[in-house]
Design a protein around this nucleic acid. Structure first.
Lengths: 184, 184
DNA sequence: ACCTGAACACCGTTCAAGT
DNA sequence: ACCTGAACACCGTTCAAGT
């Protein structure tokens, strides 16, 4: 059995992932160390390696657990600009809930490869509704994703003042929809 | 005098900065360590601290040295969409010359605070030419910067396929100019 | 003035040993 | 099966000592 001397309960993967996410939310991925995580769990650092191959895989697992939290809004029949705004809003919300983790994923996109979550399907549907020609749709989706995540990252890093946040988000979405409309 | 036993020449700040930039260009900021840098310079790790306060300050100095390399194109009287494209192009070029360093700055904007380089002045001039109303100009500049750097980061991270790079850049710029025009 | 070696407080991870 | 301690190869940085 060999339960930890310092704890009554055996260590579980869920416990590890939960605590890791908490530490990441608190101080960003940079602040997460295997040794600190183990201390937080009141366990020997090396015990973690019985549940997880290494640090990279641990972070990746945390990411893959959080990713499905993004629930891209379903097609409610609203005009496409409204749906685009709603999608961007959902994306931004997730980023704000886990800023450190989101920043990590954004800088290590390979972690979540291939493009996960209904996000890309929904985006494609919206671009179709916006009558973006088929041969430009994927490219346009890439560009829009880069634009919105660029904005979200700017916010995340405090590059955009708190009280400017909402009006700037409006400006961003309006610019995109106006651009798409003109492109039609 | 006390010149290094292993080297004939005394260590200079310029030499340190140059080698640091070379290592960063080769492997990103993550791969730069004081100890590796010292080894590359054939010097004791601790000698570096005679020329530089610490690692963060070293990287910051490298950044501040590279930043002026961005020469935002001067006002040549061309239509504003062309000037906007040229500005974005210059920005993107710098990012491609030093991908690792650019990524670092982009994720640590405080390094270059306040907004450096003629970039922001030029951007403001262009938005004026595009007849963006005065009270929206700063906000719009923030959004455009976030958009373009979002795109550049996506490229930087290999999120956009090599052969898609140029057409995607076109799509990005066209979307922005179309959006600005409609907003007028 | 400039350089250095030893030392400290951190990392991630391997491996052999404990229950 | 699960946990652990000692050990290794890395970090950044301080400090006292060398020339």
């Amino acid at each position: 059995m060999a339960v930890s001397a310092r704890r009554g309960t055996p260590l579980t993967l869920q416990e590890i992932l939960g605590t890791a996410l908490r530490l990441i939310d608190a101080g960003g991925v940079e602040s997460l160390s295997m040794r600190k995580l183990a201390a937080e769990l009141d366990v020997n650092p090396m015990s973690l390696y019985h549940h997880v191959a290494n640090k990279t895989e641990l972070i990746r697992t945390v990411c893959l657990n959080v990713a499905p939290t993004l629930q891209p809004p379903a097609d409610d029949g609203a005009p496409w600009p409204d749906q685009l705004r709603a999608l961007a809003h959902a994306y931004r919300r997730l980023a704000r809930t886990h800023p450190g983790l989101w920043r990590y994923v954004h800088n290590h996109p390979e972690v979540i490869e291939p493009r996960q979550g209904g996000l890309w399907e929904v985006l494609d549907r919206i671009l179709r509704a916006a009558q973006v020609p088929e041969d430009e749709r994927e490219r346009t989706a890439d560009v829009l994703h880069a634009f919105v995540s660029g904005f979200v990252l700017a916010e995340n890093l405090g590059h955009i003042a708190e009280e400017e946040s909402e009006p700037a988000f409006d400006t961003a979405i309006n610019l995109i929809t106006a651009g798409l409309r003109a492109h039609r």
